[in-house]
Design a protein around this nucleic acid. Structure first.
Lengths: 130, 130
DNA sequence: CGGGATCCGGCGCGATACTG
DNA sequence: CAGTATCGCGCCGGATCCCG
């Protein structure tokens, strides 16, 4: 029953359940590798090793965990082909793709304000280091 | 020179510097308390203790750190009034407010897809726990 | 090939106590 | 009132080894 529990959504529709989901989604999206994976899958379906090679510096462990989380949230689908060697393909779902679109909007903000943020940081650091 | 280093912004304008800033901003925004603070400041200027009381469960330490980070990025301003007891007011800058607008868009996505995500999680958990 | 199991360091974050 | 300092836990994320 707290007054301000929800970070993203504002006044409208402010129940506890949605707050939790909103927090979780924001957390998910910022989990260091999630966005890279979503972006990498945004154009086409990819198999595990393709993603691993396509995303620079991700470990096998983290790729697995990231994909599991995205799958759990219904953002990607996992398709296993039982051959030898086995083959697993990952693909963005419809809602996964819509999330990617929303995030691209945030990307727009970054493009417009990146210079200002960098300048602000430099000014702040110069001010406090003295 | 990696091919895919940037999570948010896509094909356009893909230099390393902007990538780093984009990552940083996404990290900042997801720092557990940042969004709550930004949202709380979105309507008006507030003093330290007001924010502390307004945001349910934040510790003094984390509020201080969060505000410092936001200030460093040029998203909030800090105004000190030297009285006894002292008084410090925080206010959203213009670019801080524009960020809030972009994030509200993401909030819209959450509102639309929260039910789907919750259902997906339930289905996934039921599938794997068996 | 596509993972799972385990070990481990770093640090995000909270609780508490102290200061100008 | 608005911080800073210190301590400690949890957990994210990397490395390494093993398995079907």
């Amino acid at each position: 029953m707290s007054v301000t529990t929800l970070p993203v959504v504002e006044a409208a529709a402010h129940d506890a359940e949605k707050c939790k989901i909103a927090n979780d989604m924001l957390a998910r999206v910022s989990e260091k590798w999630s966005m890279r994976v979503v972006l990498f899958l945004s154009t086409q379906s990819r198999r595990f090793s393709d993603i691993e090679r396509g995303i620079n510096g991700i470990s096998q462990r983290m790729l697995t965990r990231t994909l599991r989380n995205l799958e759990r949230d219904g953002l990607v689908t996992r398709t296993v082909t039982h051959t030898r060697p086995p083959r697993v393909d990952y693909e963005l779902t419809e809602i996964g793709f819509s999330l990617k679109l929303s995030l691209s909007a945030l990307g727009g903000w970054v493009q417009e304000n990146e210079a200002a943020v960098r300048a602000a940081r430099a000014a702040f650091d110069g001010r406090t280091r003295s």
